[in-house]
Design a protein around this nucleic acid. Structure first.
Lengths: 250, 250
DNA sequence: TCGAATTTGTGCGTATGTATC
DNA sequence: GGATACATACGCACAAATTCG
């Protein structure tokens, strides 16, 4: 009998088990602090600590004056593979299509500007640090709620003076199609997926709870004949997405 | 001036900024509770709450009697793409190769048994629920520390009676090569990556701190001519891996 | 419309245990 | 041994939001 476990962890474990088993489904109300205190015979502090654990895991959210509730998470599916999806019915923007598939209304804001490549971006693009690039920041919303950030960089030498210099309608058609119109034929994509705590600006931009400020970051690079032509950092709130990759073997 | 932010969040934000900027590098000691209390003019509770936030994010860990320290995370790179890597020098097992690349000594435990397919696995394998399958559980260790769990399922109709019926040396060569020897030529792979709170058994098996019990789950399916021949759930502690995908376009 | 009760959020102080230095 | 430092746990106060009669 492992009574060596602290009380607040035991309570958090009990509640977590009820949540993952579905006994406490999405939207269900957790026992109040007072009830927890009585049933386990502990202090307010312990009850609060236990709840704080579950909040940190993103499983529950508290509402002042009301209670603590199991969070409802609708996962957005983000598909990554080589086939062209633009022939499917629905929105042509990759993001809007994913959002629509999850039953959301997708919108976005963007902002482009000329700048120079910092060292890490230069390395990813295979250009010299300080070389001119077009940087575009996007903020994607689903049903008005921020759900994805991304920043993309393109070497200006590629696009300058062409009709697609500014990628403002980039998400409307996707990078691959946009580059195609200027004779740059993207044939390979590399994505590096990692998990990390969110930065302060990301917490604000994505409207995250500071207690569960984790994000998935996708560092994506598009290549044409082995040469990088675009790279982007895509920042997603952890737990809200399912990333799907499909690729051929050998 | 947003003073509307609670003190403990402001302090957590300050410390987080110092960590992600590298000012407080891996292994660095954070200010003690007493110092935090004095510099911000708050109570112990606030200092503790701030630290608890960072712990929940997996950024720091406390050591009794000593202090709170920035965690050192060596990311393991897990590469997923179609090319055969077995010609490279080093270990031939996919896991041991990734571990070696990160400077770890890779080992694993495994356990295979005949069983029947539950509904979700049957759906992924395109077989009937209850059909016989070979299930293998792995637990991977890097330098003695558990770092990856995985459970794989294969339809028994494929492998029964063949030399590769038991995949016990599976991770030694990989599924693709193993299936190749019995004439099953895997030509496609699908991986679905998601983030979720860890289950109780995963917390134990991966030796996770209950405060940051998040995992990345990869649901991988190998296909041969469009037919699923193996599927696996790969469970990774969130934040310890970088997943690399490379795939062709169009 | 109002007010009282409930419930969480934030913050204070303190005590005890345990590990480190 | 003593000082330091975190972990756990107790208690309380007030604010802010909700709920409900």
């Amino acid at each position: 009998m492992p009574t060596d476990q602290p009380a607040y962890l035991r309570i958090a474990g009990d509640l977590r088990a009820q949540i993952v088993s579905g006994e406490l489904g999405p939207g269900a109300k957790l026992p109040t602090e007072a009830v927890i205190r009585r049933t386990y015979g502990t202090s307010v502090t312990v009850a609060k600590n236990a709840i704080a654990i579950l909040k940190g895991e993103g499983l529950v959210e508290g509402r002042r004056g009301s209670g603590v509730y199991v969070r409802t998470v609708r996962r957005i599916v983000r598909e990554s593979h080589g086939r062209d999806l633009r022939t499917r019915p629905g929105p042509t923007s990759p993001f809007a299509r994913d959002a629509a598939a999850a039953g959301h209304q997708g919108e976005w804001e963007d902002q482009s500007e000329h700048t120079t490549a910092p060292a890490d971006i230069a390395a990813r693009l295979g250009i010299d640090p300080g070389a001119p690039v077009m940087r575009t920041r996007y903020r994607f919303l689903a049903d008005g709620e921020p759900i994805q950030l991304s920043t993309s960089w393109e070497p200006l030498t590629l696009t300058i003076g062409t009709p697609v210099e500014r990628p403002e309608n980039g998400p409307q058609v996707g990078v691959v199609a946009r580059m195609d119109t200027i004779g740059v034929h993207i044939d390979e994509c590399e994505e590096k997926v990692a998990d990390r705590p969110a930065h302060a600006d990301e917490i604000e931009a994505l409207d995250l709870s500071p207690r569960r400020a984790h994000v998935q970051v996708i560092r994506r690079t598009y290549l044409a004949q082995g040469r990088p032509v675009e790279t982007a950092d895509i920042v997603l709130p952890a737990g809200r997405y399912e990333l799907v990759y499909r690729y051929p073997i050998e």
